[in-house]
Lab assay of single mutants.
Amino acid sequence: KMTIRVKGKELARRIAKEMKDRNLKVEIHEHGDEVILEIE
């Protein structure tokens, strides 16, 4: 399990899509400006 902190929703969406393309499970937690992606 891996956690990534990202500034900006646009970048977070791009990373999430990339991870889904690799068949990984992604959970997205938004905290205002910061987005936390949990990847399994």
Rank of each mutant, 00 (worst) to 15 (best):
E10T: 04
H29R: 12
R22C: 15
R13Y: 09
K1Q: 10
R13Q: 14
L11I: 12
E27V: 15
K17Q: 13
A12N: 00
R13D: 14
R5L: 11
I4R: 01
K9A: 10
A12V: 03
K25S: 10
K20E: 12
E40S: 14
K9E: 09
R14Q: 14
I36S: 03
R22G: 03
A16Y: 05
T3P: 06
R14V: 12
L24R: 04
D21S: 08
K1M: 07
H29E: 06
D33L: 07
K1D: 08
I36T: 07
L37V: 07
M19S: 02
I15N: 00
I36M: 06
V6G: 02
M2W: 07
K17V: 07
M2C: 15
I36W: 14
E10M: 05
I4K: 03
H29L: 11
E34C: 14
E10W: 06
R13C: 15
V6L: 07
L11N: 08
D33H: 06
E40I: 13
I28Y: 06
R13T: 13
I39H: 01
D33C: 05
T3F: 10
I15P: 00
D33R: 05
R13P: 03
R13V: 13
M2V: 15
K20V: 10
G32N: 08
M19F: 12
R14I: 13
E40C: 14
H31Y: 14
H31F: 14
M19L: 14
A12S: 02
V35C: 12
R13L: 14
I28P: 01
I28R: 03
G32A: 06
D21G: 06
V26T: 02
L37T: 00
K9T: 09
E27L: 11
L24H: 07
I15Y: 01
K9F: 05
V26G: 01
E38Y: 14
R5I: 15
H29C: 15
M19P: 00
N23P: 00
D21L: 06
T3G: 06
M19I: 07
V6Y: 01
I39K: 00
R22L: 11
K17I: 08
K1G: 14
K7P: 04
A12W: 02
K7M: 09
G8T: 13
V6K: 00
K9Q: 09
A12R: 00
I15S: 00
G32D: 10
A16N: 01
E27H: 11
V26M: 03
D21R: 09
K17A: 12
M19V: 03
E27Y: 11
R5G: 05
L24D: 02
K25F: 08
K17D: 11
M2K: 14
E34T: 12
E27K: 13
G8W: 06
E18N: 08
E34G: 04
E18H: 11
E18Y: 11
G8C: 15
K20S: 13
I15T: 02
I36E: 03
A12E: 03
K9G: 07
E27A: 10
K20Q: 14
R22Y: 04
T3Y: 09
T3H: 11
E30G: 06
T3K: 10
D33F: 07
E40N: 11
G8R: 04
I39M: 03
G32T: 03
K7N: 08
A12G: 09
D33E: 12
H29N: 06
R14C: 15
R5S: 11
I39E: 01
